[in-house]
């Protein structure tokens, strides 16, 4: 396991250096990724400030939620962006190469390339979090900071778990790109708002069927001390980072299990 991990880190490091090979291009993608995310936040900011909050959440609280979601997405995209290339890796037969190397094929897939614009998401998330933390009433004890950090990583693992799961299904169905993109969009759009504004059934679907709530809304509710209005039991909000780890472990097992159905395209 630790050998696999160090191999993964070495491969990721190579991808990172690869990503920065064309430095001007890398920096401009990071900046445009950053600006892209901030522009996306502008429409939320306009609505929330025009109407003095949404669903009882103030502007700084919404900003905090948005920042957490964005930071998580940055970590997710840094580690899992290649899952969106997986269908092509299967169709072109590139996956054959993964099978003859002594590192887990999933780790080889994830470290195949690094999309540097993920750093734009991370910067955007960090900026929103720091701006928001001035307007919210949170005691930033070391435990609280640690929880925030774990929650951001846990959120990335939740998103990663869902995409790894559908990646596993790709072994049988090959062309699931449309599904993966739709799910990614659902996380990106519905993850930014307090679920108290959602109709009840939708909130449950986006918690237990598609775990959007665990990425940022539930841990943010815990940090902001807003757990009394949740549609689920309070401990679940505090357990969000762990949920990410559990879901990811399950998804990883599922992926390896499904990989037995791989049929080389023979190219």
């Amino acid at each position: 396991m630790s050998r696999q991990f160090s191999a993964f880190m070495a491969l990721m490091g190579a991808s990172l250096r690869g990503g920065f090979q064309y430095r001007a291009n890398a920096i401009s993608s990071i900046i445009s990724g950053f600006l892209y995310q901030l522009t996306g936040f502008v429409s939320v900011w306009i609505i929330v400030s025009r109407f003095d909050g949404i669903g009882g959440w103030s502007l700084p609280e919404i900003t905090f939620l948005y920042g957490m979601r964005l930071a998580s997405h940055g970590v997710f995209y840094a580690s899992f962006s290649q899952l969106f290339e997986f269908d092509r890796v299967l169709i072109t037969g590139e996956f054959d190469r993964f099978l003859v190397r002594p590192v887990s094929p999933l780790l080889q897939l994830l470290s195949r390339r690094l999309r540097v614009n993920c750093f734009g998401d991370l910067l955007g998330g960090a900026l929103l979090l720091s701006v928001a933390s001035r307007g919210i009433d949170v005691d930033w004890s070391p435990q609280a900071v640690l929880f925030l950090l774990l929650a951001v990583i846990g959120g990335a693992l939740v998103e990663g778990a869902v995409q790894v799961f559908f990646g596993g299904l790709s072994f049988r169905f090959l062309n699931l790109q449309a599904v993966k993109v739709t799910i990614n969009e659902t996380f990106n759009q519905y993850g930014n708002y307090p679920q108290s504004i959602f109709p009840r059934p939708l909130a449950f679907v986006l918690t237990f069927a598609l775990p959007v709530a665990f990425v940022a809304f539930l841990p943010a509710s815990a940090i902001l001390d807003r757990t009394d209005e949740l549609h689920v039991a309070t401990p679940l909000a505090w357990l969000a980072p762990l949920v990410g780890l559990v879901l990811f472990t399950l998804a990883r097992w599922f992926w390896h299990h499904q990989s037995r159905h791989y049929q080389s395209s023979g190219t």
């Binding site: 949404i54 969009e185 519905y190």
Partner: peptide, 16 residues
């Protein structure tokens, strides 16, 4: 995807 966006905007503006 447009359906997903429309649904979210509906919820959001109703809340606003």
């Amino acid at each position: 995807l447009t359906g997903i966006t429309i649904y979210l905007l509906t919820i959001l503006w109703k809340a606003a």
